[in-house]
Design a protein around this nucleic acid. Structure first.
Lengths: 247, 247
DNA sequence: AGACATTTAATTGTCAGACATTTACTTTAA
DNA sequence: TTAAAGTAAATGTCTGACAATTAAATGTCT
């Protein structure tokens, strides 16, 4: 019996946990260099493979970065918004796709949280936010657009809306809620009439934001939420009819 | 030159990326077993260490779990709310602590998002939500409570408030916003008077929720947000005076 | 002295093969 | 029939080697 000293968990997980705790608690500062792998081997009394597996776990969470060479090594990583965003989106998407979340639940969450941005967005929106939103509206109106591209544009529109609140923490927190909806929305088929209605509501929202009118924005967003839910219900019905038909 | 075939990225990162993509796209289903490490070695034409480092990366993101033994292996993991929660909280906490986010920004985000829950919470709150909130209020009133425990109880109160909206996606999205505030709030010193005021507002919120009165709840929460900001400003001032004093 | 080329040392990345451990299944014996 | 022993497959860990990368030290020439 050479190993299995501490607990049930694997050694690499334990070591990763210890280093992770040190980073979170601040014992290891951003950009600080971790000991070399060989030193970690001695310190934890394990082989290099084990240390490396531990480090790879941390790298997967963007907690450290590694570089080769003479002055290389593992360094505590400053978690960038970019990294946090993509982690957030990946996790949210998986959570939704793997846990039989109903469209209603996800949709409700998204619009509820988005509504929270409106007072701030009405106050702080800048010309470039409005321009981004109008650009997406214009794209959504182009003929021959596939449902998928339409959805992607819809997501971009909402992202611009959230960004207009000019609070990076809000943008980060909502990235998951907004982006993770895309796969779900992709299951809807948008008729010409549906798109016209959505575009009209998008325009209403943008105009209201332009006028810094939070109330009207809120009303329009609520209408959009209701309409989205309605579309989804119809899509579900059609889907159910389809699967129920060939009995 | 034995390796370095594809890109700049390390092999283990590439392999992890390929498998990750397969999971996200649905090519690999929940609970499906991945090929054994030895098979992955052949498939990707790399050594077992490399394959293992790739798998550890995925395990760190809770995308797979591994078990030993005859029927063991790596399995696609269903991302549980539990896992998603803790990932979310870890990421949010680090993002806030590593990027010089002002207390104002984080606080604004938290209360804005929390406000989004109120209409739903007023409609759906159950007795156990209210009970949880009142339990925390009671704890907050106990004498001799350390600031840290007071903060932790505050977080629990707000978590209960969010959970009252009865939407798991909202609870998940807000976990980060609520919990990541704790380290920031911990830097505040709460006088007896501060606590009394906070407890009074908590009670107001709970009573309003009990009466299913969204408007009053919203008003009280706004007052709490304003008061929290005020406390933080004073704490910052004191802090600045302290650092400015010994010149 | 300064600019450029070469060597060296440190460090991570990968490979190869071995043994340890765990677990389900099969076989055997009471 | 049941319990014990054995077997096979899989992951977890160890060891030692080599490859690749990079910065710094060293050497060489002008």
């Amino acid at each position: 019996m050479k190993y299995q000293l501490d607990q049930d968990r694997e050694l690499s997980a334990q070591i990763a946990g210890e280093i992770r705790a040190a980073i979170i608690s601040g014992k290891l500062i951003v950009n600080e260099r971790l000991p070399a792998e060989s030193e970690l081997c001695e310190r934890f009394n394990v082989s290099r493979s084990t240390v490396r597996e531990a480090l790879k776990r941390l790298a997967a969470q963007n907690l450290i970065r590694t570089t080769r060479g003479a002055t290389g090594g593992a360094f505590v990583n400053r978690l960038s918004y970019q990294d946090a965003y993509s982690q957030q989106i990946t996790t949210s998407t998986l959570l939704l796709s793997m846990n039989e979340i109903s469209f209603e639940t996800a949709c409700e969450a998204r619009f509820a949280l988005e509504r929270a941005c409106i007072p701030l967005a009405a106050e702080r929106r800048q010309p470039d936010h409005l321009a981004a939103m109008r650009a997406e509206i214009h794209r959504q109106g182009q003929p021959g657009l596939s449902d998928e591209v339409f959805c992607a544009s819809d997501v971009s529109f909402h992202r611009a809306l959230v960004d207009a609140a000019d609070n990076p923490v809000i943008s980060y927190q909502l990235a998951g809620a907004v982006e993770a909806m895309q796969p779900l929305m992709n299951m809807i088929t948008y008729s010409e009439r549906d798109r016209t209605r959505i575009i009209s509501l998008h325009t209403e929202i943008t105009d209201a934001l332009n006028a810094r009118n939070a109330e009207v924005t809120d009303t329009a967003l609520n209408a959009l939420a209701a309409y989205t839910l309605e579309l989804a219900r119809h899509a579900t019905q059609r889907h159910q009819e389809k699967s129920a038909a060939p009995k």
